[in-house]
Amino acid sequence: MRLNWGMIGGGEGSQIGPAHRIAAGMDGLFTFAAGALDADPARGKDFAQRLGVSADRAYGNWQDMLEGERNRPDRIELVTVATPNATHYPIAKAFLQAGFHVLVEKPMTVTVEDAEDLVRTAKAANRICAVNYGYTGYALVRHMKAMVARGDIGKVRLVVAEFAHGHHADAADADNPRVRWRYDPAQAGVSAQFADCGIHALHMASFVIGQEADKLQADFASCLPVRTLEDDAMVNLRFSGGTVGRLWTSSVAIGRQHGLTLQVFGETGGLRWAQEQPNQLHYMPLGKRLQIIERGEGNLSPEADRASRVTVGHAEGMPEAFANIYRDLADTITAQNAGKTPDPAANLFPKAEDGLRSIAAIHAAVTSAAAGGAWTDARPPMFR
């Protein structure tokens, strides 16, 4: 049975909206039933209806959507929040308190205090608050995690994460509204590039190695001097299991397209995965030849098999990775509704606690960079 799903933000021309709508519909588990898609009420209503949402569920703003959905017998069960960063917290909290499950775009909030409050709110409401670190939905990222967990590369010594692109490098494009808001503290919060892309790389590193960031040391730069917030960052990390972390993120790296890569080096082997070649995982066992693991081939982990939809040799990409997050959520919500225990393999979606740790890392990195790269505690206060 399909679950009703709604979306806030992600309107016409949005960068992220189409990916969510494709992902939510890919496995036939959700019906796009309600939306408040644009800051302009008329434009948002019109676009929602063109996407197939009925007129009475095409809302002008999120407050109207909350009131309109709250008491419907066919109300939405999951709402995706894909609005500018500073609005995530009030929207997510209101829907959680009203008994809806929520998927929030990253960063989950702009302050640590708000992130901790969302963790507590979700727990009190017994609702899911997930965060869209969607790249962890890739089949081979999940296989990478399984390989680390079963000891294929031994104890992890070093993890190197990158998320560097060059799409904000043109100074003439600085006033483009789709670019400008990312460097505006009033809309983006205390960080730009690290909060936008760097925390994807950090979360993926934590997800794969099964460790959390304990402390960090950061250097921020605004390579375009007109920007208040950083467009390049280098961060050193120490993880809870003793692993050393290196992370570089940039939006001015001309020639880099997407740039999300992860390398994990253990005592007996190394792994490398890149989002631009997501169907291959490079595995180098100590003293042996390089192996290239293909998505969809035989004898992969159950986590990788569950996350694959098409046979080996056919490309899968970002919408399919996002769709795995939606599938995890659908399976978990359906099991919860039936009073059953969800499939453990559906428990890989990023949770509010992951979002909180990311916000704490953002603020720690800002503090560290301002202090000339001083080592700073990266843990949220509630987890210390």
Rank of each mutant, 00 (worst) to 15 (best):
Q263F: 00
T111S: 14
Q193H: 12
V310F: 15
H168G: 12
L140P: 01
V131D: 11
Y135I: 06
K93S: 13
G44N: 03
T268I: 10
F30W: 14
R180H: 13
W248P: 01
A82I: 06
D117C: 08
E230T: 01
Q336V: 02
H143C: 10
R379K: 15
Q275E: 14
D74P: 00
G166A: 06
F207K: 04
A82V: 11
V159I: 15
N132V: 02
R272M: 11
T268Y: 02
A304D: 01
G13H: 06
R43F: 06
G373V: 01
G68A: 11
A192E: 04
F32R: 03
A39W: 02
M318R: 15
A213G: 11
A122T: 14
A58F: 01
T334E: 11
L262S: 12
L229Q: 04
I22A: 06
A192T: 03
V148R: 03
R289V: 08
P278T: 13
R256H: 14
R327Q: 09
V312S: 15
P381Y: 05
T268L: 05
R238W: 10
S206Q: 11
M1T: 10
L356Q: 08
P84I: 05
P185I: 04
E267S: 11
K145M: 04
D196M: 12
Q291T: 07
V141C: 04
N176M: 04
M318A: 13
G373C: 02
T83M: 08
V190M: 12
S191M: 10
P90G: 12
D173K: 14
P350L: 01
A24S: 14
M108C: 06
H314S: 12
Q291I: 02
I254M: 15
R306W: 03
R150W: 00
V131W: 08
I325Y: 06
E116F: 01
T83R: 10
V226R: 15
R72V: 05
K215Q: 15
V79E: 02
R178P: 00
E162V: 00
L224M: 03
E212F: 01
G35L: 03
G372F: 13
M1F: 09
A55W: 00
I362K: 02
W248K: 14
A315Y: 06
E77Y: 04
L262K: 13
L329W: 04
S222H: 12
L290M: 14
S250Y: 09
G134P: 00
F349V: 10
D354Q: 05
R50Q: 07
A352L: 03
A360G: 05
S250A: 15
P73G: 10
G198N: 14
N324C: 06
I254T: 15
A364Y: 02
M108E: 09
E105W: 06
S240P: 05
I199K: 05
L202S: 13
F100N: 13
G68M: 07
C223T: 14
D114R: 03
W375Q: 09
R272T: 10
A253I: 01
A374K: 12
Q291F: 03
F32P: 01
G68D: 10
T249Y: 06
H203D: 15
M1W: 08
F239D: 00
K351Y: 00
D27K: 14
L96G: 11
E276Y: 07
G137K: 10
G154N: 10
N71Y: 05
H167E: 09
K123Q: 12
R72A: 07
D305M: 07
M147H: 13
R57L: 05
A115I: 01
W62F: 10
